[in-house]
Design a binder for these strands. Structure first.
Length: 232
DNA sequence: ATGACGATTTACT
DNA sequence: GTAAATCGTCATA
């Protein structure tokens, strides 16, 4: 296959316009909502792309948010990436087994972030299935990237990617979808997942998703409203 | 140095 | 529905 054709296919499925710094340095809830429909891309080696459209996110509001790793201004070896400028990646390990990828928001030393919870696989599906490994898990689309741990495994993300600058890196970045793929998504919001420890914050409506999308990690409670229709 | 635990996933009853 | 897997991180000492 010619280089030109390859480029065209990648452009069509992945998109080429990279999201700029100014997108990320805004308030965290806005970024969490507007990341729905963008495309997360991992290029572990030149010309090899693993990419998926972001369909589910959660906002973590830093020092004021009991569910956030930086609650109360905590700064540790694990979470120091959250103190970088908006547009960097924060990847951490959980349960000794899985990784979760976040997009840092706001400015340096304003440690807030958006957790990427689910993708719709777009490019590199064979690689994703291989990364997911176990033949016991059928490489169905839903099982590939629905869930923060699953999507990191599928894309090959780990602590090695922690601190990556998504605005300048050739290996890990976010694009607007290709024009032909851009849609207006009705965005649903609701309670965040797996933070029962966080008291009142456990019911803050900081989880966002493309309503009814087949790659969402968990159903929303009935009554979750359409927050807005994304203009992208 | 030690102990409790987690922004999860999977298998099993 | 419940429980196991599995270990880095963090608070306490």
């Amino acid at each position: 296959m010619g280089e030109r054709l390859k480029r065209e296919i990648v452009d069509r499925q992945v998109g080429t316009r990279r999201v700029p710094r100014e997108f990320y340095t805004r308030d965290t809830i806005t970024v969490a909502q507007e990341l729905i429909g963008k495309v997360l891309v991992h290029q572990p080696e030149p010309g090899r792309f693993l990419a998926g459209m972001i369909v589910e996110t959660e906002a973590y509001l830093g020092v004021e948010d009991p569910a956030a790793h930086t609650f109360g201004g905590r700064k540790t070896a694990r979470n120091q990436s959250m103190y970088l400028a908006g547009g960097h990646a924060y990847v951490y390990q959980i349960y000794g087994l899985h990784f979760c990828v976040n997009v840092v928001t706001r400015n340096r030393n304003e440690p807030e972030a958006v957790l990427i919870r689910a993708l719709e696989p777009l490019h590199g599906l064979t690689d994703m299935a291989n990364n997911r490994g176990s033949p016991l898990v059928p490489p169905l689309l839903q099982h590939l990237t629905a869930g923060p741990g699953r999507l990191c495994q599928a894309l090959g993300l780990s602590r090695a990617q922690d601190g990556t600058d998504l605005v300048t890196s050739e290996k890990l970045f976010i694009t607007d979808a290709n024009k032909s793929r851009q849609k207006n998504f009705p965005v649903e919001c609701g309670e965040r997942i797996g933070i029962d420890f966080a008291g009142d914050a456990a019911i803050w409506p900081l989880r966002f998703a493309a309503k009814g999308h087949f790659c969402i990690s968990k159903p929303f409670k009935p009554g979750s409203d359409v927050a807005f229709a994304l203009q992208s």
